[in-house]
């Protein structure tokens, strides 16, 4: 066995040269390519991170805007609710007032209707009362009070003012002047004579009235002058009472 030291030395040199050559043509370019790819990857990662940060910022901005929109929406809804509540209260209050007004108006109308009905009923009651009284006052009772009523009529004549009596007397002389004495029942001759005397005494002129019978007067008599009528009859009394009843109901 022998070792060729020339070969050993040349192989050592060959290996060292090969190391340099491989470093120059293999490892260096490949490592550079890997480093370039890594740099590209880092750049892409950085770009991605930057883009992600931008997207994140945009997302945050959108979140903030959405929150602001939600807040604004809530505020608008709250305002709408409060406005609707105020409107509802206003409408309710107005409706209450309207209802109260309608109720008051209805009550007033009802009161008016009730009052009108009461008046109508009162008038009917008065009319009915007068009719009932006219039917109840029988002829005998009228005869009984006839003389008394005629006496009262004479007293009324005497109670007329002098000026009125003068005017009546003056008008009686005019042609066509009305001068009548109506009674519910025929007057007796004595009462006719006495009534004529009282008329002449009160008026101071000759009196020749026309005597008439009017059953509608029920009882009593009335003297019809040219411009006035002097009454003392139950019919007139019933009419007055009925008129007073109706007036009191009103």
């Amino acid at each position: 066995m022998q070792i060729d030291f020339w070969t050993l030395g040349l192989q050592a040199a060959n290996f060292l040269i090969l190391v340099w050559l491989l470093h120059r043509f293999l490892y260096k370019p490949v490592l550079a390519a890997i480093a370039a790819r890594q740099a590209e990857a880092d750049r892409l990662t950085a770009d991605g991170a930057q883009a992600r940060a931008a997207v994140e910022a945009e997302r945050s901005q959108l979140e903030a805007e959405r929150a602001a929109l939600a807040k604004s929406r809530d505020e608008v809804l709250a305002q709408a609710r409060s406005a609707a509540e105020a409107e509802r209260k206003s409408l309710l209050e107005k409706a209450g007032h309207d209802a109260e007004a309608l109720t008051a108006e209805a009550r007033k109308a009802l009161a008016r209707e009730q009052a009108e009905a009461a008046r109508t009923v009162g008038r009917r009651a008065a009319t009915l009362g007068g009719a009932i009284a006219r039917k109840l006052l029988d002829r005998d009772l009228a005869e009984a009070v006839q003389d008394h009523l005629v006496d009262q009529l004479c007293a009324d004549l005497e109670a007329l003012p002098a000026e009125t009596r003068t005017q009546i007397a003056g008008r009686l002389g005019e042609p066509g002047a009305v001068f009548e004495v109506a009674s519910a029942a025929p007057l007796s001759a004595a009462r006719t004579r006495r009534l004529r005397e009282r008329l002449e005494q009160v008026l101071g002129v000759p009196a020749a009235p026309v005597f008439r019978v009017d059953p509608g007067l029920i009882a009593g008599a009335e003297v019809r002058f040219p411009f006035t009528v002097l009454r003392r009859t139950w019919s007139e009394d019933l009419d007055r009472i009925e008129a007073e009843l109706v007036r009191d109901d009103a």
Partner: peptide, 20 residues
């Protein structure tokens, strides 16, 4: 002296270098 081992190594070096 250049042995066949060295020559083979040179050929291998050339092939590796050119290939790389």
């Amino acid at each position: 002296p250049i042995s066949d081992t060295v020559a083979t190594t040179w050929g291998l070096m050339a092939a590796l270098t050119v290939g790389a």
